[in-house]
Amino acid sequence: MDIGNLMVIKNLQYVILGAIILFSILSLIVIKPLKKFIFIFLFYLFSGFLYITLEFMELTFILSVPILLFMSIFYLFELKKDIFSIKNISEDGDIDYASAYFTDKESGKSDTKKTVLNLVAPVLFSALIIVLYFIFNGGYIKSFKITDKITIVAFSDIAKEVFSNYMILVIMLIISLFVLVIWSTTIINNRRKR
């Protein structure tokens, strides 16, 4: 494919990348679970669009399967957390679990100190990464050598690569899925017994 044909896609990429960053920030800020999950979904959707503009259509569809599975269980967890929220339970009146929960929390003596530290530490860590970038890598971006030709990876290429070279990982993956089944059935059975 000629790279000149991709001019439209290039301009599209700016918009899509902006949208990805916007939705990631929004999904972190928004409090209501439903809205939050709409934004996470949009975040994944736009990252999928980006992969498609980079000519990875089939990879995007393959990757969407684990993402959807993960998102569904994540959404279930969030819903459950919202339903069994401590505010809703304390109105039951029968047993005061809420107070039992709150008394066991760490005493709020050094609360202000903790919140300051809690804000300062991430800022420092992020700043450390930025500083490391500027110390070590002035020439990182300049060193990119852009190629002229772009080819499209078909699913058959990926499958060929996986099954010719990485068969051993597929075997490990199958065994780990067995392990996952054993583990999850045990967890579910224990919850049911209780």
Binding site: L54, E55, F56, L59, I62, L63, P66, I67, L69, F70, I73, F74, F77, F144, K145, I146, T147, D148, K149, I150, T151, I152, V153, D157, I158, E161, V162, N165, Y166, L169, L173, S176, L180, W183, S184, I187
Partner: peptide, 30 residues
Amino acid sequence: QILYGTSVWAVTFVLISVILIFLFQFMIVF
């Protein structure tokens, strides 16, 4: 895509490691 004109190796890496990381996260959220 842009530096190497698509290498199958990178795509395989992304495929396998993303599936595995999602498996791990799936277990944690489960």
